[in-house]
Amino acid sequence: MRIGVNATFLQRPATGMGQHLFHLLKGLDAYDNENTYILLSPRFRHSSIGRFPQLSERFQNIEVVSALRRFGEHFESLWWEQVGIVRACQKENINLLHFPYFAAPLILPAPTVVTVHDVIPLVMPEYRARARSRMYSSLVSMTVGRADAIITVSEYSKRDIIRTLRIPEERIHVIGNAVDASYRPITDARVIDAVRERYGIGPKYILYFGGFDLRKNVSRVLEAYARLPATTRAEYQLVIAGRLHLLGHRLYPDPRPRIRELGLDDSVVVTGQIREQDKAPLYSAATVYLFPSLYEGFGLEVLEAMACGAAVITSNLSALPEVAGDAARYVDPYNVADTSQAIEELLEDADEREELGRRALARAQDFSWRRVAEQTLDVYKQLAR
């Protein structure tokens, strides 16, 4: 079987969907010895160079030049999803097409699988405030509804898909995420010290790492930290890690003005982009990892932290309890006082932190890219019958 995969997000390797696709392909290569995979990529006017994993000869890269390069990124993306990839599938004799993100062509060129990680634009109104966003959400909701099978990453997302897209339950397959084997407890003091020095981090810190759009709730992270006693803040820095993205966009507020307003300049470190090899040491050395997100289809950062043995405080909403299980302390993410109290109590209780770390490592073992690949291939086989 010739399986076509929309490989657009390999051009965005730092994103969650880019990481997911990268590791899914590696898993399929290791597990599937029968099928041929055609990785279909658009060459937009401002395309980044794709980060392709090292794969066997059964994986072929096909690049398609955009026909709308003069009209800008949004038109190019729409052309690729509705026209370019359809033509590429016909030319390459594709037997099955996988869109690994929330989109699909109106005219399906082959039996089609779509991975819907979440339906944020459909359940959070602020993410569809612009007319262009509403039009695109309406289009992809219709096209995805025509797909032969839907893969999603949690039971929570499955329920949201059924409710918002009206897709029958039997067409939806829940296949969880996983993290790379590099996410593991790092105990080498020299490695940890080098990472802390690189980003200006002290010996004790509370870590937030997980993006800066509104639903990530960073403003309340800062407010919860500000409520801690001054002596606690003097002992434990708050580290806000990750690249500040789309500064000035209403959905991506810059946290630094809020840090100044709260008088936290001396105790909050904003790191900027974290190198891939520095993530595991950063998670491992944190006294507490804090992630009170308002909405997650899965919550990959929580799984990363758990795989490193971190003591996790996270939200009691959306898919996060499903992912973390009994390996996290849960808070109401809208309640700053609740979050602040949880931080203070966990900082003061080394035994609870150690217990959560043990549970986190055990829980993280339930998620593997081999399992993701096996279950994804099962969906392909069902459509091929």
Rank of each mutant, 00 (worst) to 15 (best):
Tyr225Thr: 03
Leu207Glu: 04
Ala181Ser: 14
Val174Glu: 05
Val179Lys: 07
Pro203Asn: 09
Ile172Cys: 01
Gln237Arg: 10
Pro185Lys: 08
Val191His: 15
Arg256Val: 07
Arg171Ala: 03
Thr231Phe: 00
Lys204Gly: 10
Tyr183Pro: 02
Pro185Phe: 08
Thr232Ile: 10
Leu246Gly: 12
Val195Met: 09
Gly200Tyr: 13
Leu214Cys: 11
His173Ser: 15
Gly210Tyr: 01
Val218Ser: 01
Val239Arg: 01
Leu238Ile: 00
Asp254Lys: 01
Ile162Pro: 07
Asp254Ser: 02
Arg198Tyr: 05
Ile186Thr: 11
Ala226Met: 04
Gly176Leu: 06
Val153Leu: 01
Asp254Trp: 01
Leu251Pro: 00
Pro185Gln: 09
Ala241Val: 12
Ile167Cys: 00
Leu244Trp: 10
Ala230Phe: 05
Lys204Ser: 14
Asp254Asn: 03
Ile162Val: 13
Arg256Gln: 09
Leu222Met: 09
Tyr183Ile: 10
Lys204Val: 01
Arg190Cys: 15
Thr231Ile: 08
Gly242Met: 04
Arg166Leu: 06
Leu228Ser: 13
Arg220Trp: 08
Ile192Met: 13
Ile192Arg: 06
Leu207Arg: 05
Arg159His: 10
Leu214Met: 13
Pro255Val: 11
Pro185His: 07
His245Cys: 09
Pro185Asn: 11
Ile206Cys: 13
His249Pro: 13
Arg233Trp: 00
Thr187Ser: 15
Val221Leu: 12
Pro185Val: 07
Arg184Asn: 07
Tyr205Gln: 06
Ile206Lys: 11
Gly210Ser: 05
Ala241Asn: 09
Thr187His: 15
Tyr225Gln: 03
Thr152Ser: 05
Thr231Asn: 12
Pro229Val: 05
Pro253Met: 08
Gly202Ala: 07
Val179His: 06
Tyr156Thr: 06
His245Ser: 13
Arg256Pro: 09
